[in-house]
Design a binder for these strands. Structure first.
Length: 572
RNA sequence: CGGGGCGUGGCGCAGUCUGGUAGCGUAUCUGAAUGGGGUUCAGAGGGUCGGUGGUUCAAAUCCACUCGCCCCGACCA
C-alpha cells in the first residue's frame, strides 16, 4: 500500500477526551474514530489489526474443533422471555419494536439464539458434542462507556457455545476452549493470566477470565506468591483462619454506650478509641426478599458475590431503611447481632474475635465487649469478605498479591441453565430425554487490540507485536524528489509486495522527520530507511521499532527479503 | 440516576466574569526555498461560537429551556 493513498489520519495532538494510552494512541494513529458515546468506527489501519486478530482467533477455534457460524444481531423478545432474561437482563439490553409492534432486542450475547438453533436441529447424543462460534457485533447499552473501545456499547466479540451430552464431555469442551484461548493470547504476544472468576448466578461450576495485565485495567486480579492460584478479586478465596480456643473466662462484661450520631466505622473508632479490627460491622441484605445480616470485621469489606453464592440466592441487595427498621428496630447505622430478627451469617475472621464493639440495634447506641455465644448465637461462618493484599491463599496459605488486569476473554460452564429453560433436549443412549450441557466462551476483539496497545507502546506510539501489526514493514524514502531514492524504494516495494509481505511505502512528499514520527506512531515493526548516504554505498537501513536496533543491509531485493524473513520469524 | 466539567474553523485551546469588528497554535490549499527525527518564508481558504427561545440598540458573552460529550460515583447476566 502506498501511504499517500491510505485513509490514515494521524494526529499530533492528544484528543482531549481520551484518558488511557490505548484510547489516545488508537485515535492518534488513525485506527478509530468515535461516532457517538461508546460507538466507534474502525478506519483501515484499525480494521487491519482487527482482521489480524480475528484470523488468529479463527485458526485457533477451528483447530480446537469449533465451527464458525454467523447469527443475527436482531433477536425476537420471545426467545429472551423463554430464557427468562427479558426480565432479568436489565437496561443493558437495548429493546425496540418493529412496524408491527413486535418486540426485539439487539443481541448483547447469543445464548438464546444458538440454543434455539441447536435445539431444533440436534436430537440425539450421536450428534454431540458440538461447538459453534461466531465473530460478531454485540450491543450492550452500558451505563457508562469509557476508555474508547475498551468499554463501549457496540463491539466485536468472538463467542463460542459448546453442547455436550454429559458432564465429562463438557469438561473436555471447556478444557479445549481454555487451551485455545491460551494459544490465542500467547500468539498475540500478550502477558496474560487465566484467573478463576465468579460465575455469578449464571450457574455452572467453573469460570475463568483471561486477564491482560495492565495498570489501567478495570479489574483487580489476586494471585498467590506461593502457588499458581489466581482469581478475580470478586472470587478470590481467603484461607479460613485457624480457630483458637475461645476462653469464655476472658469475656468482659457487656456494656452499652451512647454514641450520638456515630454511625460509620471511622466515627465509631474515633468516638470509642478503638481500632477497626475490634469492631464488627453488621450489614443487612435482602436476599430474594428475605432479610440476612452479614457480620464482618470493621476493617473488612463484604463481598456480595460470595454472599450470593453462599446463600444460593438470585438477587441480593442492601436492605432499604424500612427493612432495617423492621429487622433491627433502629435506623440505619446502629445494626448489631444481638436480638436481630434476621438470618445471621459471619465471615471467618470473626471466629477469633472476643470483646468486640458492634451496633446495639438502638438509635445512637453501640455495645462494647460483645462475645459470640454468650451474647448471641452464631452458627454460620463462611468466607464472605473481599480479599486484601497480604491475605492468606486458600490453597497454600502464602500471602496473596494484587494486580490490575483487562478482561479480554471469559470461559464459562453454563451447565443446563439455558438448555433446561429453552428445552434444548436430546435422547441419550437409553432413549431418555436429557438437557444438553452447555459452555460459552467469549473474546472481546476490540478490547484485546486495545489491551495489546496498553502493553506495547512507548513515548512515540504503538509498538505492535508482529502478529497483530497492520503492516509488517514500512519503506521510508527520505526524499521522494530524489529519483534515485524513490526508484530504489519503489523497486523494494514491488518486490516485497509480490513476495507476500504486508508493506507500506511512504511515498508522501514529507520531511523525513514527519515520516519517522508517523511510522513510530502507527507502530510498524520494521522500517526500511532509504537515504542518500546509504544508497550511495549500495545499502539501506532496517530499524526495529521494538528494540530500536538498526541493521545495514545491501540494497538488493533478495538480500532485504532474506533479512526481513529472518526478523519476522524471530519476532512471531 | 447523583456529583463535577466541557461544547468557539479538522484537532488543541483563548475570548464569557465586565455584552460592542470572532482570535491563537496546529492542520489544510498555493508558491518558493529546504530535504535523515514533526523545516522556513510569503500568501489564501475555512467558524450558524451545540440548539431553541428570551433580555438588549447590540449576545460567543446575560437569562431560561434543551441536546451532546467527558470525568467521579451508583449500577452491571
Amino acid at each position: 500500500m502506498q501511504y499517500s493513498q491510505l485513509f490514515l489520519p494521524t494526529t499530533r495532538e492528544i484528543p482531549s477526551d481520551a484518558e488511557i494510552v490505548s484510547h489516545q494512541l488508537m485515535l492518534r494513529a488513525g485506527m478509530i474514530r468515535k461516532l457517538t458515546s461508546g460507538i466507534y468506527s474502525y478506519l483501515p489501519l484499525g480494521y487491519r489489526v482487527i482482521r489480524k486478530l480475528e484470523q488468529i482467533v479463527r485458526e485457533e477455534m477451528n483447530r480446537a474443533g469449533a465451527q464458525e457460524v454467523f447469527l443475527p444481531t436482531v433477536q425476537p423478545a420471545e426467545l429472551w422471555r423463554e430464557s427468562g432474561r427479558w426480565q432479568h437482563y436489565g437496561r443493558e439490553l437495548l429493546r425496540f419494536r418493529d412496524r408491527h409492534e413486535r418486540e426485539y432486542c439487539l443481541g448483547p450475547t447469543h445464548e438464546e439464539v444458538i440454543t434455539d438453533l441447536v435445539r431444533n436441529e440436534i436430537k440425539t447424543y450421536r450428534q454431540l458434542p458440538r461447538n459453534l462460534y461466531q465473530i460478531q457485533t454485540k450491543f450492550r447499552d452500558e451505563i457508562r462507556p469509557r476508555f474508547g473501545v475498551m468499554r463501549c456499547r457496540e463491539f466485536g466479540m468472538k463467542d463460542a457455545y459448546s453442547f455436550d451430552a454429559d458432564e465429562p464431555g463438557a469438561e473436555v469442551s471447556y478444557g479445549r476452549m481454555f487451551e485455545a484461548y491460551c494459544r490465542i493470547f500467547a500468539r498475540c504476544g500478550l502477558r496474560y493470566r487465566a484467573v478463576e472468576a465468579d460465575s455469578g448466578n449464571i450457574g455452572g461450576s467453573f469460570s475463568h477470565e483471561f486477564m491482560v495485565m495492565a495498570d489501567s485495567g478495570e479489574d483487580a486480579v489476586v494471585f498467590c506468591e506461593g502457588c499458581d492460584y489466581a482469581a478475580n478479586l470478586e472470587k478470590a478465596e481467603i484461607a479460613k483462619p485457624e480457630a483458637r480456643k475461645i476462653d469464655s473466662a476472658r469475656f468482659l462484661p457487656r456494656e452499652e454506650v451512647e454514641t450520638p450520631d456515630v454511625k460509620t466505622i471511622e466515627e465509631v473508632c474515633r468516638f470509642l478509641s478503638v481500632k477497626p479490627e475490634e469492631i464488627v460491622k453488621t450489614l443487612v441484605f435482602s436476599a430474594d426478599g428475605m432479610p440476612v445480616a452479614v457480620l464482618v470485621r470493621g476493617d473488612h469489606e463484604v463481598n456480595e458475590a460470595k454472599v450470593r453464592n453462599y446463600l444460593g440466592c438470585d438477587s441480593l441487595e442492601l436492605a432499604d431503611d424500612d427493612t432495617i427498621l423492621k429487622v433491627t428496630g433502629s435506623p440505619r447505622g446502629f445494626a448489631g447481632a444481638i436480638g436481630i430478627r434476621a438470618r445471621l451469617i459471619a465471615d471467618h475472621a470473626l471466629l477469633n474475635m472476643t470483646n468486640f464493639v458492634m451496633g446495639a440495634n438502638r438509635r445512637d447506641t453501640h455495645v462494647r465487649n460483645v462475645n459470640m455465644g454468650r451474647d448471641f448465637p452464631l452458627r454460620e461462618f463462611a468466607d464472605l469478605r473481599t480479599a486484601k493484599p497480604g491475605d492468606a491463599c486458600a490453597r497454600c496459605g502464602k500471602p496473596m498479591q494484587f494486580a490490575r488486569g483487562i478482561e479480554v476473554g471469559h470461559v464459562f460452564k453454563l451447565g443446563t441453565k439455558y438448555s433446561k429453560a429453552m428445552r434444548a433436549l436430546f435422547l441419550d443412549r437409553e432413549g431418555r430425554e436429557q438437557p444438553m450441557i452447555m459452555g460459552c466462551y467469549g473474546i472481546g476483539i476490540g478490547r484485546t487490540v486495545a489491551a495489546c496497545i496498553e502493553q506495547n507502546h512507548d513515548e512515540a506510539g504503538i509498538v505492535w507485536p508482529m502478529a497483530l501489526a497492520p503492516y509488517t514493514v514500512i519503506i521510508t524514502p527520505v526524499n521522494v524528489k530524489d529519483e534515485k531514492l524513490f526508484q530504489a524504494s519503489q523497486r523494494l516495494y514491488d518486490h516485497l509486495s509480490e513476495r507476500g509481505f504486508e508493506v507500506l511505502l511512504d511515498d508522501r512528499d514529507e520531511r523525513a522527520g514527519v515520516k519517522f514520527m508517523d511510522a513510530d506512531l502507527i507502530g510498524v515493526p520494521l522500517r526500511i530507511t532509504v537515504g542518500p548516504k546509504r544508497v550511495a554505498e549500495g545499502k539501506v537501513e532496517i530499524k526495529s521499532r521494538k528494540s530500536g536496533e538498526v541493521s545495514v543491509v545491501a540494497l538488493d531485493e533478495r538480500e532485504v527479503e532474506t533479512f526481513l524473513r529472518e526478523r519476522i520469524s524471530k519476532e512471531m
